[in-house]
Design a binder for these strands. Structure first.
Length: 579
RNA sequence: CGGGGCGUGGCGCAGUCCGGUAGCGCACCUGCUUUGGGAGCAGGAAGUCGCAGGUUCGAAUCCUGUCGCCCCGACCA
């Protein structure tokens, strides 16, 4: 392919709107163009890269035994009503709307994910355990009404996703969910590895479904909006929602103060009380009242800690918790919201472990406009139940005692054991060995293809431009033909190009009539992993140059030798980049 | 949805406070020169200043409304 016949609108300057490196570079390198907030066109060069990512995903999913199909973006809203997700998704579910109430548009939504549709298909066609296990996947455009798209293609309203769904009647047994989950986990590792990403699989929060049934694949980068937490010794890692912390030591720093009531008029938040009483938030006990199925459950955490509702619900043994209504809080504490405390509180209370080692603490007094000081857990209120129910923070240690470190990251993939959530709701059943209908046990597995591309750029760029991993670079190599008016340069560059193509290298010949510096800058901006320089000066010595974009290493070789060497470099790079 | 910022050729910006009929750099077109790190000179094309009202002899500029985009936060199967 010749540059003059291709289409690469590079720009010297990035738009002021673009903030993160991948966004700036994707625009500057002519990979994408924004159409509206949260939706981008992929220009030919960008689409080439996306297609390479797609090919890798497809190969590995096929190899893992998943069957490719294609489902529509348009779904009847009835399917979403069956699983109760019209409410659950809220504004994220993109409705076509328009027209009158009985217009077909008001009954159609654009799919943000496809559990409902695929479960309908399984319900329709899969009748016997003998057909199982089954895994379907597709690579398809998703629509989500994100409140705030951001960071270029990292968070958009329309994006390309590989979503897979597996169907089983068994869990641990052969052919069960666990087996497929493991296989998908392996396929994901291979996919992100082949794409050259420094990915980290982490335990993720699985929400109301419970269990250790979810992993996310993260790529560390400042542009990300998630956090991954890992132990310094590398023995433990999880996402922020999931991260467990080791119990804190009892510093024994109490003086066994007497409990006293203080007047704190109108001061209902930790910050307000902390300022008023000149008391560090870490010396306060935060009393947060939740409810589950109408019953109040109270969480106690240190003032500078936050309740992790998933951990809390798990500790409480309930599917999920929600913040209690102000009415319930008032009824329980006999005080306005903001003055709850554990002393003499008649409710089920779970204290975070960190609270159990506090001394002389400040808490709400269960009396409007009053707090208590000198509160000592165990002495002033009984701790019937304690657990790790808070979010990890800097300074915490992993369960094995190793310090936790926090890293910003992008989620590029997620594997999830769904269980029977959707099959039960949609009455999608299958006959087991005993001829009894059982709801499918399902797994789902997603990858954001656009995010792979952006994450690769976030991970691999410098001040000059992108440094693509070989496997997903739009072109593996570029030939900079210096001085297109020189016949020998044109001739040799053309020959090198043809030999590279014959050797199976994906190469672009920069045949523009431009000055050398101009071509080099563009080559570095676009980030071709290998640059071959064919110029009058080199040819006079009988050589062409081969340069590695990442290392900058240069080899000078005879033009005839370029194709073999570069083909080998491409092969080696694809193997070595694999993480 | 709350807070903030910004809309002027493809991109980056000035001009807005103080109203007088739109300018600079990059990119683009033509010609000549130049060719190993984003060339030089000359000529040229391209913007109803986001949109709609209003004030005024006159609006990019003032007023009102509206739309869009970006950032922070809330939210995120």
């Amino acid at each position: 392919m010749k540059w003059t016949q291709y289409f690469i609108p590079t720009q010297k300057e990035a738009p002021a709107d673009a903030v993160v490196p991948s966004h700036q570079l994707m625009i500057r390198a002519g990979l994408i163009r924004q159409v509206v907030a949260g939706a981008y066109s992929y220009l030919p060069l960008g689409y080439r890269s996306l297609r390479k990512i797609e090919a890798i995903v497809r190969e590995e999913m096929d190899a893992a035994g998943a069957l490719e199909l294609n489902m529509p973006a348009m779904h009847p809203i009835e399917l979403w009503e069956q699983t109760g997700r019209v409410e659950a998704m809220g504004d994220v579910l993109v409705r076509l709307g328009g027209g009158s109430g009985d217009d077909w548009r008001s009954r159609v939504v654009l799919g943000p994910t496809h559990e409902e549709v695929i479960t309908e298909h399984a319900r329709a066609f899969v009748n016997s355990y003998k057909q199982l296990p089954l895994t379907f996947y597709q690579i398809q455009t998703k629509f989500r009404g994100e409140a705030r798209p951001k960071s270029g293609v990292l968070r958009t309203r329309e994006f390309l996703m590989k979503d897979a769904y597996s169907f089983h009647l068994a869990k641990e047994e052969a052919g069960g969910l666990d087996e497929t989950y493991e296989r998908m986990y392996g396929a994901y590792s291979t996919i992100f590895g082949r794409c050259g990403l420094p990915y980290v699989p982490v335990e993720a929060e699985s929400g109301p479904i419970g269990g250790d049934a979810s992993h996310e694949f993260m790529v560390p980068t400042d542009a990300g909006e998630d956090y991954l937490v890992r132990a310094e010794d590398g023995e433990y890692r999880a996402n922020l929602e999931r991260a467990e912390v080791a119990p804190l030591d009892d510093k024994g720093d109490g003086t066994d103060q007497a409990m006293a009531e203080v007047h704190t008029p109108g001061l209902g938040t930790i910050d307000e009380v902390s300022n008023f009483l000149k008391c560090e938030p870490c010396r306060m006990i935060k009393t947060i009242i939740y409810e589950s199925e109408g019953e109040p459950i109270v969480a106690l955490v240190r003032g500078d800690h936050a309740v992790n509702e998933s951990k809390f619900a798990r500790a409480a043994g309930v599917p999920f918790v929600e913040p209690a209504s102000p009415e319930l809080i008032t009824k329980l504490t006999k005080a306005d919201v903001g003055f709850a405390g554990p002393v003499a509180l008649d409710a089920r209370v779970i204290a975070d472990q960190a609270v159990t080692v506090m001394h002389d603490a400040v808490t709400g007094a269960n009396k409007t406009d009053h707090h208590l000081t000198g509160v000592n857990p165990g002495r002033d209120f009984e701790i019937k139940s304690s657990a790790d129910i808070r979010m990890a923070v800097e300074g915490d240690r992993a369960p094995n005692g190793s310090p936790l470190v926090f890293e910003k990251c992008i989620e590029v993939g997620h594997v999830f054991k769904l269980g029977t959530k959707y099959s039960s709701a949609m009455e999608a059943t299958c006959l087991d060995q005993n001829g009894r209908p059982q709801p499918f046990i399902m797994g789902c597995y997603g990858i954001g293809l656009n995010r792979i591309m952006a994450a690769a750029i976030e991970s691999f760029h410098d001040d000059r431009g992108i440094c693509w991993p070989m496997a997903i670079a739009p072109f593996q190599a570029v030939i900079c033909a210096l001085d297109m008016r020189e016949e020998t340069v044109v001739k040799v560059a053309g020959e090198v190009h043809d030999q590279l193509v014959a050797a199976g290298v994906d190469v672009l010949l920069d045949d523009r009539d431009a000055r050398p510096g101009f071509k080099f800058k563009d080559a570095e901006l676009v980030g071709f992993p290998i640059r071959i320089t064919v110029g009058k000066r080199g040819l006079a010595e009988g050589i062409a140059e081969i340069q590695n974009r990442r290392t900058g290493d240069v080899q000078k070789v005879a033009p005839d030798a370029v194709a073999d060497i570069v083909a080998k470099m491409v092969e080696d790079a694809i193997r070595e980049e694999r993480t």
